[in-house]
Simulated assay, not measured.
Amino acid sequence: MHELGIAGAVLRAVERRAAGRRVRRARVRAGALLHISGPALNQAFIAVSDGTVADGAHLDVVIEPARIACRSCGRTATSDRMLAVCPGCGGTRMDLQGGDGLVLEAVQFAEAERRVGHEPST
């Protein structure tokens, strides 16, 4: 399960952005060519974040398809796998334009807990 290694990398990025603040949720955009399972990555993130600032946080995973462009006919297509042959002309000169990245898009922090009975006086 390669999601465990990816979850560790995501956790390190989340911890850097959190700078000690508690994390409630985070969102990553993963390219389809990484062949990541969103639910498996979230479960791996839960496992690796135990005892950290992200303990109990949920990881939202957005899968981004690969964009592929044919050098022969100029057609572009999106796919969840690398195409070897253009679906338009059958050409084999294809350029990959994404679908293999991993980006931490957002981190939501837990709100500071208010202590009951210690409200500021007005």
Rank of each mutant, 00 (worst) to 15 (best):
E3G: 06
L4G: 06
I6K: 05
A7C: 13
A7D: 09
G8T: 08
A9L: 03
V10Q: 06
V10S: 08
R12E: 12
A13V: 07
A13F: 07
V14A: 05
V14G: 04
E15A: 14
R17Q: 15
A18V: 07
G20N: 10
G20I: 13
R21H: 07
R21K: 14
R22K: 11
R22P: 08
R22D: 05
R22N: 04
A26V: 06
R27Y: 08
R27I: 13
A30Y: 00
G31V: 00
G31M: 00
G31L: 00
A32L: 13
A32D: 07
L33C: 00
I36Q: 09
I36P: 09
S37M: 12
G38S: 14
P39I: 01
A40N: 11
A40R: 11
A40L: 15
L41G: 02
F45I: 05
F45A: 04
F45K: 05
F45M: 05
I46Y: 14
V48L: 10
S49P: 05
D50C: 10
G51M: 06
G51C: 05
V53L: 14
V53N: 13
D55P: 08
D55S: 14
D55Q: 12
G56D: 05
H58P: 09
H58Y: 15
H58K: 15
V61Y: 01
V61D: 04
V62A: 00
I63H: 02
I63T: 04
I63V: 11
E64L: 04
E64I: 03
E64V: 06
A66Q: 00
R67Y: 03
R67W: 03
A69F: 01
A69Q: 06
C70D: 09
R71S: 04
S72V: 10
C73L: 02
C73K: 01
G74L: 07
G74R: 08
R75I: 08
T78N: 06
S79V: 10
D80M: 01
D80W: 02
D80G: 02
M82F: 14
A84W: 15
A84R: 15
A84Y: 15
V85F: 09
C86F: 08
G90N: 06
G91E: 01
T92V: 10
T92E: 13
M94P: 02
M94K: 03
M94W: 03
D95W: 02
G98L: 01
G99R: 08
D100K: 00
D100G: 07
G101N: 01
L102E: 03
V103Q: 13
E105R: 12
E105W: 09
F109I: 14
F109V: 12
E111G: 11
A112H: 12
E113P: 12
V116C: 07
V116N: 07
V116D: 14
H118G: 05
H118S: 10
H118W: 09
E119N: 09
E119S: 13
P120Q: 08
T122V: 15
